Amino acid sequence: MAHPPRFDENDPYLRELRSVALDLPAAEEKISHGHPVFYTKKIFAIFGAVVKGDHASDECAQSVVFLPDAIERDALVQDERFFVPGYYGPSGWLGLNFRVSEPDWQEVAELVEMSYRNTAIKTLVRQLDAMR
């Protein structure tokens, strides 16, 4: 059984996140488990998250889920905008809830790029470095 869509195609936060994520080398988008996900060989960002055990909640529907550097993770979770997402959290992923405060898109771009660097193959990271 396919997962129902858990996002609005016209969401302005999704539009901005797409702009950030799809600007990275070889980045693509697909729908997985009802959410837009951005990936190369592996996922590096997800639009929206669910609360583990409460899939009906839309509390984190407008957020980005990303894999931070381990050294950054503890500092990020101290900020009320960040949360540990269901299912991805035990693997070190965090979410940034766009509903808590209006997102700083430069910060979002830095977080998405960090996640990209933590998941992409080395040749893509070198391409990214050459772009910067």
Rank of each mutant, 00 (worst) to 15 (best):
G53D: 08
A56D: 13
L67M: 15
F7P: 02
E16L: 02
D23T: 12
F66P: 05
A130I: 02
T123R: 14
E107S: 10
G92Q: 04
G53A: 09
V77T: 13
V64M: 11
G48C: 11
D54F: 13
I46C: 10
G34V: 01
V65S: 01
P36Y: 09
R18G: 03
F47W: 11
H3Q: 11
H55K: 08
P5E: 09
I121S: 14
E113Q: 14
V50F: 01
F47A: 01
A130F: 00
A75F: 00
A109S: 14
E72P: 05
V50R: 04
K52R: 10
I43T: 15
N118V: 09
E102G: 08
A120Q: 05
I46K: 07
Q127C: 03
V77K: 06
E29D: 05
A56M: 05
D54M: 04
G95H: 02
A27P: 11
L17F: 06
V50M: 07
A75W: 02
V108N: 08
S101D: 13
V77W: 01
A109H: 03
L22P: 05
S32V: 10
V50E: 15
A120C: 06
P5F: 08
N118W: 14
Y116G: 05
V64A: 06
A56N: 10
F47L: 10
A27N: 12
P85D: 11
E113N: 03
E110K: 13
F44L: 08
V50H: 04
S19G: 15
E102C: 09
A56C: 01
A49Q: 07
A56Q: 14
E29Y: 09
Q62F: 01
D58E: 14
R126K: 12
M114Y: 01
K122H: 08
T119V: 01
F38W: 00
V50Q: 07
I31M: 05
V112K: 05
D74I: 02
R6N: 07
E16N: 15
M131R: 09
E107D: 09
Y39R: 13
W93N: 12
S57G: 11
E59F: 06
V100E: 11
R81K: 12
P5C: 05
I71V: 15
T119M: 11
R15A: 15
T40V: 14
R126S: 15
G53H: 09
G34L: 12
V65G: 03
P36R: 05
L76M: 15
V125H: 06
F83I: 07
Y39V: 07
D129L: 06
P5M: 00
C60I: 03
K42D: 14
V65F: 03
V64C: 08
A2K: 01
R81A: 15
V51S: 07
L22F: 03
G86T: 01
K52P: 06
F82A: 13
V20F: 00
S115K: 01
E28W: 00
I121T: 12
Q62G: 02
E110A: 10
A49E: 08
H35C: 12
R15I: 11
Q106V: 09
P85F: 03
I71D: 10
P90Q: 04
E28N: 13
A70I: 08
D69F: 08
Q78A: 15
F38Y: 07
Y87R: 00
T123L: 14
F66Q: 06
D11S: 14
A27F: 01
P68M: 10
E107V: 11
